[in-house]
Design a binder for these strands. Structure first.
Lengths: 248, 248
DNA sequence: TATGGTTGTCTAGATAAATAGACAAATATG
DNA sequence: CATATTTGTCTATTTATCTAGACAACCATA
């Protein structure tokens, strides 16, 4: 196999790690043994030491474990499925997948609305908005880092409420928004920025799923505009268009 | 700024390219000039030559253009917005964004259904299915590579029809499926595999958005199960949950 | 047309990644 | 307990990446 490319700025061992993830692991059951390092080296056309670097990286990510004399084994881990629909909430939809879930307020700031935020919230450009930076975890593992903007006039207490409750839904309920629904969600994927690496405990080159969404209340008024970064190796997004989606 | 990390298997120039993409370009209008190479080198704490490698890479991607004596400029390019909803079609929804769109059949094969395909199509494990590999382009640029599976009993002519028409929708219509809707779509992101690099004309380390979706006909019977890989730097997915989504 | 700022090219040396080979340490098995 | 298989560690060498500095080529403008 001669599929790896050199002189591309991506170290060979990293490419090998990606190939193992994508072409070797899918064929294995949990706790099953991988082919020996020497065999993988031949298969990918690289030195055994390069394969070892790749395996070391995957081991550090918690995907594999190597045992001297026995072999290297696939750990038992599954990806979190994060539902996105009209009623997108962090907590609900994950109950059966994680024991504990939490939301932490990293920072809040009142600022004039940047152009795209003003547009999303149907506010005048530069109108005051509150920006929340939050981090959500499931079973103590960082799942997403989000930045949300709210109309400062309508939701002046949002930061304090979120800090107290750890939930956007609960905070909004206390401010008189009984219900809200997701209007649109845009999804992109990109390499994690240095800030993402930090917040989400990722290693360089990692991928984040970026969603940008607008939530509206029952009158159709925009309630919040948010951008979330999900760790792509721990999360997949599930978009459900079934009949339950029908507007009330 | 000291945000770059060394010894990670990602060459510094590539990290610089990503940082430029994410922290410098968003602040620029189309055709606006970037800070000078020397200034960027200081900002990122690397040698000017490293910045030049990064710019060369972005130039090769068509994002920037460097002009000797004048500076380096941001090209005018926009990301394609690919709508995902109950009625997900490749052609419609892109009309206003690309002059020409085409679908090409790469290969087709009849095979026993792999477990996850059988589940998705509500078939018995191992029942015969037709697998289509297709490539979709917009304005001659590869946008997505897809693998789709159909019940071989119900849609035996699907490969020939797709080869002829370049459209799943039209092919299905000729086989008596007047309408179909998307039941669920799962979205993941990962590094492009060597096959993806090839098909989608990407460079190593590039990201693909992977969607896995099930389409059903008006009776609720599964029509196709498909997995699509989108080039993350040229496409974003737009999930629309508005009232138009209401089932017919 | 002189000047300052910009990108382009070249040389040289330092640091990181990849290859090659040898052997130790642990494990499973006959 | 002898043997084959596997991962772990070490040394040495080659290749790629990054840094450093100097200067050429080109552009805008005073």
């Amino acid at each position: 196999m001669k599929t790896l490319q050199r002189r591309t700025g991506i170290a060979l061992w990293r490419q090998v790690a990606d190939e193992i993830r994508q072409t070797v692991l899918p064929g294995l059951a949990a706790n099953e043994r991988l082919p020996a390092e020497a065999e993988l080296a031949i298969r990918f056309g690289v030195n055994r030491h390069t394969v070892r670097s790749a395996i070391a990286a995957l081991e550090k990510e918690g995907i594999l474990r190597a045992e001297q004399g026995r072999g290297t084994f696939l750990n038992d881990r599954k990806r979190l499925r994060y539902p996105i629909g009209r009623r997108t909430r962090f907590s609900s939809g994950l109950e059966d997948q994680a024991q504990t879930r939490s939301g932490k307020l990293l920072s809040s700031e009142t600022m004039p609305a940047p152009p795209h935020v003003a547009t999303a919230l149907s506010l005048a450009a530069g109108a005051p908005v509150i920006q929340l930076s939050t981090l959500s975890t499931a079973d103590a593992v960082p799942i997403s880092a989000a930045t949300s903007w709210f109309d400062a006039g309508r939701f002046s207490q949002i930061a304090e409420l979120y800090a107290e409750t750890g939930s956007i839904t609960v905070s909004l309920a206390r401010l008189g928004v009984d219900d809200y629904t997701r209007k649109t969600t845009a999804v992109e994927a990109r390499h994690a920025s240095s800030e993402d690496l930090d917040l989400l405990a990722l290693s360089p080159g990692a991928i984040v799923l970026l969603t940008r969404g607008i939530d509206i209340d029952s009158d159709g008024r925009p309630v919040l505009y948010g951008e979330s970064r999900f760790t792509a190796d721990r999360v997949e997004l599930l978009i459900d268009n079934r009949a339950a989606e029908t507007p009330a």
